[in-house]
Write a protein that binds this DNA or RNA. Structure first.
Lengths: 188, 188
DNA sequence: GCCGATGTAGACAATTCTGTCTACATCGCC
DNA sequence: GGCGATGTAGACAGAATTGTCTACATCGGC
């Protein structure tokens, strides 16, 4: 009898199961708050299997961030495209994310806050993540002398909105205020 | 012979010493990363003294956030006043903060990311903090119909800038991009 | 047919964490 | 004078942490 609380498909290879489980727990509860034993139990593997794939928790943390990065950017680019591939796509795209029940802010902002001082790789991966987010935003802007700086301004406003959405009960104020900020930025 | 690594003045009452030490360690290294034993050792008190003042680590965490809140707002209001008490004061004020060697982002953003899912008081205190920050910003704006929303937009931009300054090596890009964002917001 | 990669089961070690306990000292204030 | 608040020193308990170890099973590909 298996009484595992496995939440991921047991047909997936062990490595995928571990990564998916870590992704859910790390993002939801925080990284330090999540013990390795918990990840092992919920992904339905054994300790040996786990440690064969991830020599230490720090390795898992880095792989979790890389995994999250690929996943998030893929969603972001797709959402922007679905909503018209211009600046007006930003709000509906972010609205999707903020309204998702599992939204708990930006995994990279959270991780840098939690581990940045102690695990430099976390900062490095997160910086790369924000850079790629900014590049995706830049592609929405018409080529011009200010494109790079404008994209940075939009990215900064979005980070502020992520924080706001994370703090508030509802994502509406964050989206509303972000809209005002974007409008002001475009009307220059 | 006292070999304590006490970093706070030993003449202060025990409670102050604990709070100052916790403030430094929690902000610098993260909350979960900092053990109670470490706080006790570096504040130069004993376990009994510590637990008489703070029944549990969670109590200390909340008191740390309240302490940080009072301290930060006091500094912020003062800095805004010193720099002219108008919107142009924001940049030089934040520049002071970002350039401080101990800057490691916003303690409330970091704490919500780390503990928000598991300690609701943290979110509550942090929300209050952001509200008071926003009110201080609102007082820089001329009374108008949009004052509240404008203050929220400025606060959101500032949160984005805090993140950016925390991620980057240097605070310059964060300040520069924030400047652009504020200029756009005012020129409406 | 064999080898290496991947998988399972669970005991065990070493450390660290929070929090409790006993026993005693000092100081301000009613 | 006595009491309560505040302080010191350090042993101890109980739980949780990360990571190691032995022993065995399965399966695909060379």
């Amino acid at each position: 009898m298996q009484t595992n609380k496995t939440r991921v498909s047991p047909t997936l290879p062990a490595r995928e199961r571990i990564l998916l489980t870590a992704h859910e727990l790390f993002y939801r509860d925080g990284i330090r708050a999540t013990g390795i034993d918990r990840v092992i139990a919920e992904s339905g593997v054994t300790k040996v299997t786990f440690y064969r794939h991830f020599p230490s928790k720090n390795d898992l943390i880095c792989e979790f961030l890389e995994f999250r990065h690929r996943r998030w950017i893929e969603w972001f680019v797709d959402a922007l495209q679905r909503h018209g591939e211009n600046l007006n796509a930003l709000l509906p795209a972010l609205s999707e994310w903020f309204n998702d029940g599992s939204f708990r802010g930006c995994a990279f902002i959270n991780s840098v806050g939690e581990l940045g001082a102690v695990l430099p790789e976390v900062v490095e991966i997160s910086r790369r993540h924000k850079l790629e987010m900014m590049e995706a935003i830049a592609r929405l802007l018409p080529p011009s002398r200010h494109r790079a700086v404008d994209a940075q301004a939009v990215a900064m406003a979005i980070d502020g909105a992520i924080i706001r959405a994370q703090f508030d009960q509802s994502p509406e104020p964050a989206l509303h205020v972000l809209n005002r900020l974007l409008k002001a930025l475009l009307a220059k």
